[in-house]
């Protein structure tokens, strides 16, 4: 009961920011000569207008929820894991590498896919821990370390796609040879959506919510995030917890990479992360560590992403408008949060 009430109150507080963002977006659209009502309607229809569309939204939701769940862990530990994009990419590379090794082996598909999932998690976690090691050992702020590692990861994926993993006779940045159908995560009939993508996303969100609210480990991560020095002096092995937070987040990013490779693209492409790392950062910023909100807010963002595709088709508007809308939402919510804090600080 109390929990539900708290959730409602939180929703209410965010509504102001959402409305603010919608108003600002409407203003922009009017300037661009488009009807805001029509734009929002098209986005809504594009996201929820049919079962196929809804399925497409969930195709985005799966990896986005995985990434956001991971980011909640690093946020709880006070870390800006900007390196998340690179971690998705490394996860996808791990998955692709293991699939390439095993696709001709006499193993059942589920076994190959399980190995690939594990490889993706390990690759993502390892890449994230590298950010962590740079911070803990080298004193490199995780934002800069993460940016650097993102560049390295994208250079690596380009090199693999144009080089060792190129399609025979072809030198193209459009991607590797698609994997055989048997190694695709099965899609629900008539859609591109894999049950496993949603299931993995839900499981990750649930596990992270449980971790942060009910476990001693979660409490310790939060302590490290809120006051690293004090947590250390209170006897929490703070450095180890930082690394652990990175590792957990990277592992979930690796799962997102697994979903992208095996359920969405069925091959490795340069933009395999689809920008979900940064989108996940936006979602995490909005919900501010409240795990219960990951699922709905991620649906919202996924819906804008998918619905935005209708803008060029129906209204000849640039679909990057959906990115603008997402950015405005984040700003709107943060702005109204800030206003409220100011108001609370000086009544």
């Amino acid at each position: 009961m109390i929990r539900a009430r708290v959730l409602c109150q939180q929703a209410g507080r965010q509504a102001g920011g959402v409305i603010l963002a919608l108003l600002a977006a409407s203003g922009l659209l009017l300037l661009a000569g488009a009807s805001p009502v029509e734009v929002f309607r098209q986005i809504g229809l594009g996201a929820f207008g049919s079962v196929t569309r809804l399925a497409d939204v969930l195709v985005v939701w799966g990896p986005l929820a995985l990434v956001t769940a991971g980011l909640l862990v690093t946020f709880a530990a006070g870390l800006w894991n900007i390196g998340i994009e690179g971690q998705i990419v490394m996860g996808a590379i791990g998955v692709t590498g293991s699939l390439r090794l095993l696709q001709d082996a006499p193993l059942p598909a589920w076994a190959v896919l399980s190995v690939a999932l594990a490889a993706g998690m390990m690759a993502g976690a390892a890449w994230a821990m590298l950010s962590g090691l740079l911070k803990t050992v080298g004193g490199v702020n995780e934002i800069f370390g993460g940016l650097g590692l993102n560049f390295i990861a994208s250079a690596l994926i380009l090199w693999l796609i144009f080089g060792p993993w190129k399609r025979p006779g072809i030198g193209s940045m459009s991607g590797t040879e698609p994997f055989p159908d048997s190694l695709w995560l099965p899609a629900l009939a008539g859609t591109r959506l894999s049950f496993w993508s949603v299931a993995l996303g839900l499981a990750a969100v649930g596990a992270v919510a449980l971790l942060l609210s009910r476990t001693v480990l979660g409490l310790r991560l939060k302590a490290v995030g809120r006051n690293f020095r004090a947590a250390y002096l209170l006897g929490v092995p703070a450095w180890r917890h930082l690394l652990l937070a990175f590792g957990l987040c990277g592992a979930l990013a690796g799962v997102a990479g697994f979903v992208q490779v095996t359920a969405v693209y069925h091959r490795l492409i340069p933009s395999i992360s689809s920008g979900y790392g940064f989108l996940g950062l936006m979602v995490a910023l909005i919900i501010r560590c409240r795990a219960a909100w990951v699922a709905p807010v991620a649906v919202f963002f996924a819906a804008i992403t998918i619905g935005g595709i209708q803008l060029p088709i129906a209204l000849q508007l640039d679909s990057s408008l959906s990115g603008v809308l997402q950015g405005l939402l984040v700003l709107g919510v943060l702005f109204s949060d800030g206003l409220r804090h100011r108001a609370a600080a000086r009544p």
Partner: peptide, 9 residues
């Protein structure tokens, strides 16, 4: 509050 305790806990 800087080193000893975690203010938000």
């Amino acid at each position: 509050l800087e080193e000893g305790l975690i203010g938000d806990m």
